[in-house]
Design a protein around this nucleic acid. Structure first.
Lengths: 222, 222
DNA sequence: CGGAAAATTGAGTACTCTCAACCAGCGTGG
DNA sequence: CCACGCTGGTTGAGAGTACTCAATTTTCCG
């Protein structure tokens, strides 16, 4: 992006707001009028099924858009919620569409962002569909560590890792109890250390192998 | 889209090609240089995990793009394969990018297409993550029937439904054996009739309820 | 008509879930 | 300052859904 692109972004009419942990930023079924991006904190997307169970669909870290799809879609098809206290940037979708119309580079960057989101969703389908509990959790930990590192949000280990075991369970399609036992297994085998929201990956190679983790789907280089 | 938009699309340098059942259209890890769309037949996206198991990530019907993400991403992050004999349209990604640059309406339509793809991936994460076998299969059947109908590819029941039980299993994260038994349950309960690639949904309301199916995520109206 | 692919069946296994109880940490209020 | 309550984490036992393996039947297609 050129300096002009960046100036155009900076000139957009956006606002900032802080949300408490667990606050909803987007609710399924509600009309979509704004787009939000995360300035500080962690957030996640989720859907609820008929019996009340929750599936988390993705985790988001600072710097990421939370609902870029709202720029074109009329009604939200899933919920977005704060994982921690969050500082969020809010842009009205029309402002974003104007910017996109005027700035090819920005347009490209935003489309690319949504395509990478999409790639992550695909990998999550694979993760919950074809891996067992140990593999799923290993994969999730690798993904988050990799993304934090690559976004420059980690200065070495341990990583800030604000997910409770129940939330890890909702990411991986498991129950909280089984997640607990599986995490204990990973600890016992000297692969990770995880407590009080601090994650240390003690043996990256083995954890990545267990989780069948290959960073290609994150498309870092693009 | 205006008539000019349509003329611009028609004027693009694209080619047609027929592929046999099971042929690969895109292979994970290979450089992405073209985009393809399905003119006739069925195709699917899939990823393989380390132990060789396969997870199908989406099913595609005539009229849909198969790898729009290749227009911006450099390396394919998953495989695309024909489910049946397919007639496929192929566009070099540079031609598509030129068209996008010149035609705001086309650009919007393509981005929208990729956003709806994304929404379907999210629903699949939920399906394999938080539903049991019967619910997963019911949901898959509802989705495909709904999409075929809404694309105008079905003139009433039965629907063309070219998935084998093994492929249904790979869509839902189950084994072929369990898929077989679960389908028998759906038949026994008078919900569906499925054989020789012909699907009849005998009781839509009950099937949709079992599968917790809500068409919102397909964003038909947009 | 023959062979391969797809569907079906049975029996035994195991991974994950459910339910329930219990422990630990922490912020709040008496 | 400590009790209390809440959330999050841990443990145990038993149940159940889904898997594995292997054989058999049926269907599809050349």
């Amino acid at each position: 992006m050129t300096p002009e692109d960046k100036a155009a972004i900076a000139a957009m009419p956006w606002s900032e707001r802080t949300f408490a942990r667990d606050s909803y930023l987007v609710r399924e079924g509600e009309p979509a009028s704004v787009c939000t991006f995360l300035i500080k904190g962690f957030a996640f997307r989720q859907k609820l099924v008929s019996d009340g169970a929750r599936q988390i669909i993705s985790i988001h870290i600072a710097g990421e858009f939370l609902d870029l799809q709202n720029s074109l879609l009329d009604v939200a098809d899933h919920n977005v919620q704060c994982l921690t206290r969050c500082l969020v940037g809010i842009i009205h979708k029309s402002a974003l569409l104007d910017l996109i119309a005027a700035r090819p580079n920005v347009r490209r960057a935003l489309w690319l962002d949504s395509l990478i989101d999409s790639s992550i969703f695909r990998e999550w389908v694979v993760n919950v569909g074809r891996r067992d509990a140990r593999e799923r959790i290993a994969h999730l930990l690798c993904e988050l560590a990799d993304r934090l590192k690559s976004a420059g949000l980690a200065n070495g280990q341990p990583y800030d890792f604000p997910l409770t075991q129940e939330q890890i369970a909702d990411c991986t399609g498991l129950t909280a109890v089984h997640t607990n036992r599986t995490l204990q297994g990973l600890r016992r085998d000297g692969l990770i250390s995880l407590s009080s929201s601090q994650l240390t990956i003690l043996d990256w190679d083995r954890l990545a192998e267990i989780g069948d983790f290959n960073e290609r789907y994150l498309h870092h280089a693009v």
